[in-house]
């Protein structure tokens, strides 16, 4: 019930090209807001189950982008429906959130920037690992690359601006820190984050029934493993 109050007059629906609209909340990211966004996304999907015109629903920290085919779908009824749904209580989103443990090896050989993060924070490497493995991070959304998790809850002490010059190739599974975010590169890509470790877990298991390990509202905890364990588990994955 409580979200009913906070949502009132705290959102707007803006044009995003000719085939999408974006619902923007003027609220900081939070678990409650992610719940509201996911519930709204679920309700819209249910309302238009087989509509060919409604193609994508992209949740983010404090927005929901809705893509449609403008030849088959008109925007005004969609806006009205969103207004109507936001009058209701949206806290009832039923989602069985899981706690996903992700093994990370913080060994120097896989963590080219861990010393830099330690000196930037004015702590030692062991403290970086302790502070990184301590929280249960909230998955706000997936995006950027397939299976990339936007996590909330990084210890402010570990925050560090991105590199000025991005590295051309960061290995898949690399765990990094960029600004106030921490995350895992699901596939090899260029990137400007500071790399503090690597996971043997595949975050984008192409060809399997469920290629993604987490969904919004799940929680992620990093668990430290040794280099030997990393090597062993990497062989199992590949």
């Amino acid at each position: 019930m409580s979200n009913h109050l906070i949502l009132k007059n705290s959102y707007r629906i803006v044009e995003n090209g000719d085939s999408a609209i974006t619902l923007l909340f003027d609220l900081p990211p939070s678990e409650q807001l992610t719940k509201v966004i996911m519930q709204l996304s679920f309700l819209l999907k249910r309302r238009f189950p087989e509509t060919p015109g409604l193609s994508e629903l992209i949740p983010a920290y404090n927005s929901l982008t809705i893509c449609f085919n403008p030849l088959e779908f008109s925007v005004q009824p969609l806006k009205s429906l969103i207004d109507e749904l936001l009058q209701e209580d949206l806290t009832g989103y039923v989602y069985q959130a899981s706690l996903i443990e992700i093994p990370v090896c913080y060994h120097q050989s896989l963590a080219p920037d861990i010393n830099f993060i330690a000196s930037h924070a004015g702590i030692n490497v062991q403290d970086v690992i302790a502070k990184h493995t301590q929280p249960e991070y909230l998955v706000h959304m997936l995006g950027f690359l397939p299976g990339f998790l936007y996590l909330g809850g990084l210890n402010p002490e570990l925050c560090c601006p991105r590199k000025q010059v991005p590295k051309l190739r960061i290995a898949s599974g690399s765990v990094g820190i960029g600004g106030d975010q921490t995350g895992i590169y699901p596939v090899a890509s260029p990137g400007g984050w500071h790399i503090i470790g690597q996971t043997p877990v595949n975050l984008f298991a192409v060809g399997t029934e469920n290629p993604f390990i987490a969904a919004p509202l799940d929680r992620v905890k990093f668990v430290e493993i040794s280099l030997a364990e990393f090597n062993e588990r990497s062989e199992q994955v590949t």
Partner: peptide, 10 residues
Amino acid sequence: ISSSGLIQGS
């Protein structure tokens, strides 16, 4: 600005 859904043509 806060990161959000990015569509083709943006």
